[in-house]
């Protein structure tokens, strides 16, 4: 007895989720920030962000199809983190790394915050 481990399965599944997002297939929530709209899948948001986990596991909010985030949140930072959720790649532009870190903190994505902090320190 034994098993076959498909080593690239996780990446293949995530790539398909990102293809679904880009084609707006089965997306079930729109995140609104400062007039910008981002379509996504609640399951991916919940899997990656503590904030969305607490929102969408609340029976009173789990059926919401649109969420407006605090206008303090930077849409560019959110876009970088949403791409990260769907690709495992975190874009780090010097001009946006602080915004990305603050947005990750707001979304309760602590591991990303730590990584950004280490990146900033390494650049100092």
């Amino acid at each position: 007895d034994g098993c076959i481990q498909f080593t690239r399965h996780a990446g293949d599944v995530l790539l398909n989720f990102n293809r679904l997002r880009s084609r707006n297939i089965l997306t079930d929530v729109t995140i609104q920030i400062d007039g910008q709209h981002f379509c996504a899948h609640k399951t991916v948001l919940v899997a990656c962000s503590g904030l969305f986990y607490s929102i969408f596991t609340d029976p009173l909010k789990s059926n919401l199809s649109a969420i407006s985030l605090d206008p303090e949140v930077d849409p560019d930072g959110f876009a970088i983190l949403l791409d990260f959720m769907y690709t495992s790649t975190l874009t780090l532009k010097d001009s946006l790394v602080l915004v990305t870190m603050n947005t990750a903190s707001y979304l309760q994505m602590e591991h990303v915050v730590d990584t950004c902090r280490r990146f900033i320190k390494s650049r100092e």
Binding site: I4, T7, N16, R19, R23
Partner: peptide, 21 residues
């Protein structure tokens, strides 16, 4: 599953959803 007669398959595991239909 590590170790118990595990065969590692490096190839694609599932279909690829096209960028557009």
């Amino acid at each position: 599953y590590e170790g118990v007669n595990t065969i590692k398959e490096m190839g694609r595991s599932i279909h690829e959803i096209p960028r557009q239909e």
